[in-house]
């Protein structure tokens, strides 16, 4: 993230100096729920994989040609996923409540604070997302316009991942209690389709996680610390008044 203020026009006579200020970026609630979510989703994905292993039928491919089977044996062996169904279920069905409560709390929080306005993509700036992508892949030199806390690529990604969380909870309940929650299961295309959705959401979460870590590493230490303190240090240009 760069400066949020620009030097006033026509004032190039004054030699620019910078002052270091800490600008609020992530509110308290967002920070807490972000960090609480991290271990919870890790436990959910891990115990979920232990459940999946008991019937690991999904593969990625086209026209009957299997390109990637979820998952190759080394994955199971390394992560100790073999014959762990009972423990997987026990952790999954209990921590699911904590994951759901945290997600619900976050939804209410972003709504009450108006933070959601920083998150939803804006149609008129949607083109920026493409620009950001090309820029981040070093395919385009000029930086995308700075329009506040998150650029459009971030807005799209974060909104998408929140939607994934919502879908994970819905599809999870749909396969957990398909009779008692038959309407939900029906809405998601039936038991087996809901299970595919639940699995796909998990894989997308993992992909998001990889990109998220890479981007946080790229964005640097100040950005990372803003998720801890709430504030990001910025060097802001000021005009001298002597």
């Amino acid at each position: 993230m760069t400066d949020t203020l620009e030097a006033p026009p026509g004032d190039d006579a004054a030699p620019p100096t910078t002052e270091r200020v800490a600008v609020l970026k992530h509110r308290r609630g967002s920070r807490w729920m972000h960090w609480i979510n991290f271990p919870l989703i890790t436990i959910m994905i891990y115990s979920g994989l232990r459940i999946y292993k008991a019937e690991d039928i999904y593969a990625f491919g086209i026209f009957g040609w299997e390109w990637f089977h979820f998952f190759p044996d080394p994955v199971y062996d390394t992560l100790d996923l073999n014959r762990r169904l009972a423990r997987g279920l026990a952790f999954h069905f209990n921590f699911a409540w904590l994951f759901t409560i945290n997600g619900l709390a976050y939804a209410i929080y972003t709504w009450r604070t108006g933070e959601w306005r920083q998150l939803v993509p804006r149609r008129r700036h949607l083109k920026d997302a493409w620009h950001v992508l090309l820029h981040d892949l070093h395919l385009r030199k000029d930086p995308p316009p700075n329009r506040g806390r998150y650029n459009e690529a971030q807005r799209l990604t974060y909104s998408f991942v929140l939607l994934l969380g919502f879908l994970a909870i819905l599809s999870g309940f749909a396969i957990f209690k398909p009779t008692q929650l038959s309407f939900l299961t029906w809405m998601l295309g039936g038991y087996e389709t809901a299970r595919v959705i639940h699995f796909t959401v998990t894989i997308l979460f993992c992909l998001f996680f990889v990109v998220h870590i890479l981007q946080v590493a790229r964005a640097g230490f100040r950005n990372l610390m803003s998720m801890v303190t709430g504030y990001e240090i910025v060097d802001r240009k000021v005009e001298s008044h002597d």
Partner: peptide
Amino acid sequence: MTEPGFGEKEELT
């Protein structure tokens, strides 16, 4: 950029 209130200052020294 962000809405006022909720107990956190917009900027810190």
